[in-house]
Design a binder for these strands. Structure first.
Lengths: 232, 232
DNA sequence: ACAAAAGTGTTCCTTCTACACCCATGA
DNA sequence: TCATGGGTGTAGAAGGAACACTTTTGT
């Protein structure tokens, strides 16, 4: 006996899947092939199913849309978005998740994901459907903040990576240049951030760089300060 | 034409309303007088109504349950909780909000809020209904973290307060003693954290303390470090 | 030899911690 | 004059920023 004060609604999960490609912070978007907003770009996502928990739905959508294994990527909840008019179909609240992916080709070809592609976030100013522009803004800010406080940046990298790769992630996400020498020291001297594999990678030009993989630590204390040189 | 994959559900808003009372971090709880979990303690909250946005629902519930004006208190979203079996009545997802209140008597006497009262969070270990124990844990951790990074602590205080009042908030929420002299300097020298009123308050014993009110700043940079003395 | 990227050593400066010391009030 | 909380000064430690300099590769 639901009374007037208990609204029945549908719930979706939307994903802001970020990656660092070349010199741009990019996000995975799809082109919608159904109304509403048919033909427009949007974040991938989908409806919560019966018996499913929110994180599980996010993992499932990540797999469906990108072929990536959500169990192996950090998938953090950003929050719930519930403006009453955010979806013209009626009351639909969405829970947004932030995923950080290495720069991989998408093995997609999935159902809804035909039109999936990476787009630099700077090229999307205001172009997304629903309230996805706001969600993307908050996802980017959350990613920037998590880079300061956690070891999340390693999730942007392949399984093994150099300190230069990792620094490049920070530079792309923060949008500022960092001093390679100080950065290297801070990362290597922070317990559990990275562990050396013992191997080296020879670049096109220059001295070989030691390879690392992600360490067990999840929190950085002290944090890695953003703003770099003389930001005052 | 909703298909099987689009679950219809109800959505609630739950509030973790924290305050610093004497030497305990306390939270507002109600005693449920309807099933499920009748007679058990729970966080205040209620169902989202048609046409209402999530933050608006949180403000309304805060007013209904406590008489406090949610528009004047910082009300931050913690996240959505959607385990499929979290509510025995069926699929109900909740969005949790964190509110920080000054230590005020509750002008309640509202409908559902008859049994509303402050309880020290330490006295509630595992005692709450639904998944509210988890929500409370995450609310406390979020409050601790926000004290480091934001000026939120002023929301725990009355309109005017002394630096000692503010320090007491930090000590209660973090559970560690702080050096009064260094704390005073950090707060006063951080632009926009507090502004002096020019008045003084005479304590029961001791030198009068300058009174302040909350300043315009919302973010603390650099953060106020937790852990206090020799925490390494 | 040169270019380019990796990595080390060192100096300067800011900030935090700890604590000695002074201030203003009531009992 | 003593107890109590408010507030200033300051020395030492810790860590970041800046940058000179060395290492190791390909061309």
């Amino acid at each position: 006996m639901p009374d007037r004060t208990r609204l029945l609604l549908q719930l979706t999960v939307d994903l802001a899947i970020l990656t660092a490609r070349e010199d741009h912070l990019s996000v995975l978007v799809i082109e919608r092939d159904n109304p509403p907003f048919r033909g427009q770009l949007a974040l991938p996502g989908g409806f919560l199913r019966a018996g499913e928990d929110l994180h599980g739905a996010a993992v499932r959508e990540l797999a469906e849309e990108t072929g990536l294994d959500g169990g192996r990527l950090p998938l953090d909840q950003l929050g719930a978005y519930g403006q009453p008019d955010r979806d013209p179909r009626g009351p639909v609240v969405t829970v947004a998740y932030l995923a950080i992916a290495p720069d991989l080709p998408l093995p997609v070809a999935g159902s809804d994901a035909r039109g999936a592609r990476w787009m630099p976030v700077d090229a999307l100013r205001g172009a997304l459907a629903f309230d996805h522009n706001q969600i993307l803004d908050e996802a980017v800010e959350a990613a920037r903040s998590r880079l300061e406080l956690t070891t999340l940046a390693t999730a942007f990298c392949a399984e093994t990576f150099t300190i230069g790769d990792l620094r490049h992630v920070y530079e792309v996400v923060w949008g500022v240049p960092l001093d390679p020498r100080n950065f290297s020291r801070k990362v290597v001297h922070t317990d559990g951030f990275v562990v050396a594999t013992g191997d080296k990678r020879i670049p096109e030009t220059g001295r070989p760089a030691a390879l690392y993989r992600a360490g067990p630590a999840r929190l950085l204390s002290p944090p890695l300060l953003r703003g770099g040189p003389d930001h005052g």
